[in-house]
Design a protein around this nucleic acid. Structure first.
Lengths: 334, 334
DNA sequence: TTGAAAGCGGTACCAC
DNA sequence: GTGGTACCGCTTTCAA
């Protein structure tokens, strides 16, 4: 590769100092229009682009952020990522994307590698690490935006989806249809959002006077396969179950497949509700009744908040609450 | 944020020079086991992590690459991204992800911003910019791995999916079933992979002695909505069409929806074949017959190749060909 | 085996 | 308004 064009080259060509070039390209400090023009002409001529690395070293800001998600192939996260990236790009930021595969170890590594990179801030979705590890990390690094996890710390902002209410909406809906034995295909045991949905399920069941058999709650990976396995086990072991509420749409789909194999028709012989309302929920057959989360908005909010924190490092920001709504379709018709 | 721990701090604590610390953490140069231990102890004690930025400036290598895709919410790309990222991480690289929204302008900006970042290399999927722009860019920046686009340039490696053959497989299959009027829901006009699939379609039609009405070929965005619109237009304007071959699975799904609205049953009154075989192709109803591409493998190959180029900057590497296969399902049964 | 000094490509601070 | 100089945190080169 040809040697990189540096600020020095521009300065030489324009017949000014490096400093003046710096002023010109950064639109700051007073500069005479004349020199500005000369410098910009030189920049054009050489097709000069300042090195982000050098700039990062000098300013201690890289205009770079890290986005950590469990798995970008889970259709929930691409939409979130778009929300983050669109806001980021609009403000001149680039985004590192890291997958953790639901592994706390990978997550911690991702955090540390991003901190060393170093990025100006980190957005952490689907966190699975322990409170201790996360707190230890927040002590050394910020700003940090964390989703769906309570963690009151300086330098940490929270985005909270109303998971409990989402679960309540689903259970209410099923209970109103006289379902009493409602199985719960919970998410990963390490997932705070799953814990919140489980809690919402428990409260709603209680509110309807419905007893909960602990065996009806089966955690597992947030994938089609995971939902399939869980539904098979649950329906085989507890034939009295007439409805399933799943941690996410992928698990709900797995459950639909399991029902089909077990000869239980959805929704008539088994009613199913998912969570997230990913785009394709409407496309499968039967289409999926689901608790809708505005994923793109979530990403936008997370990135906007991170920008706010970057602008006012000393400020404290309240958590952002994001609502949910039930979208009715074939797998759990009215 | 507490001041960053630097190599200087470690050196002081260990009672050695910065240089010795550098040697220790990079496992290079001769160093006495004793000092090594002392240094590493200091590193531990301070929880020191070298700054990627400073290192990048000094070495001119950031262990960072850029991945450009049209749209990460298109289910094709998350799988590719995982392939790229898994190989990247396994080799100590981080990945910047950029979306272009199919826009040549955004794509060019993404390329330039990544080049300025600067990343060690770029993987470009779904390129939409002009040959001129791309060539101009390759002259100033490499290494570059480009997918599905012919471009013989030094510093550029190619990954080529056998798009023509994929289209041929689909058309052969339909022609063998006596379909003669086969519509083509092509991709974006700027998409090289779409052009290749159109070409394959033309050749296969000709091989079967089937005339092609140019109006049967309708390009458009690679989305469900795009496929829906295109299929509506095509089927309304040319009722004799009995089968549709779509640029990708999303367009095929849109077509299925259009058929349902028009009262044409799939596959009996309209047979449909998609492309990509994204994971959910098997989940929709009717399930989708599709030309399968191994997306994860594609990503792995792209990143592996990029690593090779990074290791041997002077070497020339041949294009990597990636095969396809037809997966039969309900939308076009045997 | 270890250390001193220069340099990577910018920005910040202070003169002029 | 402009230029000189130090400095960001690390690696590289060369000497000791």
């Amino acid at each position: 590769m040809n040697r990189r064009v540096t600020i020095e080259d521009v300065a030489r060509l324009a017949g000014v100092s490096r400093q003046t070039v710096s002023r010109a390209i950064n639109n700051k400090g007073e500069i005479s229009p004349l020199t500005l023009n000369r410098v910009m002409a030189a920049v054009e001529a050489l097709d000069y682009r300042p090195s982000g690395v050098a700039r990062g070293l000098a300013t201690q800001r890289t205009r770079t952020i890290g986005l950590i998600v469990p798995d970008i192939t889970n259709p929930f996260f691409p939409e979130v990522a778009r929300g983050v990236q669109d806001v980021a790009r609009g403000n001149g930021y680039s985004v590192f994307l890291c997958n953790t595969d639901e592994s706390p170890r990978e997550e911690l590594q991702a955090l540390q590698s991003l901190a060393a990179q170093p990025v100006d801030g980190i957005i952490l979705f689907g966190s699975r690490i322990s409170d201790d590890d996360l707190i230890a990390f927040t002590d050394r690094y910020h700003p940090l935006v964390v989703l769906n996890r309570f963690l009151q710390r300086p330098g940490v902002s929270l985005i909270l989806v109303d998971n409990q209410r989402g679960a309540k909406l689903a259970v209410d809906y099923l209970a109103d249809q006289r379902h009493a034995a409602i199985g719960l295909l919970a998410g990963p045991v390490t997932s705070p959002s799953s814990a919140q949905r489980v809690e919402g399920y428990r409260q709603a069941m209680a509110a309807h006077g419905l007893p909960v058999d602990e065996n009806w709650i089966l955690p597992g990976p947030p994938t089609i396969e995971g939902g399939y396995e869980a539904a098979r086990l649950l329906l085989a072991g507890h034939p009295q179950i007439t409805a399933l509420f799943a941690y996410n749409d992928l698990r709900a789909w797995g459950a639909i497949q399991a029902c089909q194999e077990l000869g239980r028709r959805v929704p008539h012989q088994c009613t199913i509700i998912g969570f997230d309302d990913i785009r394709l929920a409407a496309m499968v057959s039967p289409s999926l009744t689901s608790v809708r989360v505005d994923k793109y908005y979530l990403g936008q909010q997370a990135m906007s908040r991170l920008l706010n924190m970057l602008e006012e490092p000393e400020a404290t920001f309240p958590p952002i609450q994001v609502g949910v709504e039930l979208v009715m379709r074939e797998s759990a018709p009215a």
